[in-house]
Amino acid sequence: MSELKEQIKQLIISSLDLEDMTTADIQDDDALFVDGLGLDSIDALELGLAIKKQFDVKIDANSEQTKAHFASVNSLAKFIEQARS
């Protein structure tokens, strides 16, 4: 799981061009959007695409659950684990 979280953090940094950040700057339970990391709606789309590509999981763009999955690295990791099993 911690390896998966590290992969997710790396993906966030590379797919969203967060050049000045390292994975150590992102806490597992940090809010990714608005407050916390300050990502916006275009980032959400970009990150969704990157996760779909790298982990081969399906993401429903219109579901309320998706919003919850994208709240933090923790919730993303849980979502990807479930989707893959």
Binding site: I42, D43, L45, E46, L49, K53
Partner: peptide, 9 residues
Amino acid sequence: QPLSPTGFG
């Protein structure tokens, strides 16, 4: 391949 939303925008 799917298009990058940022790139497209």
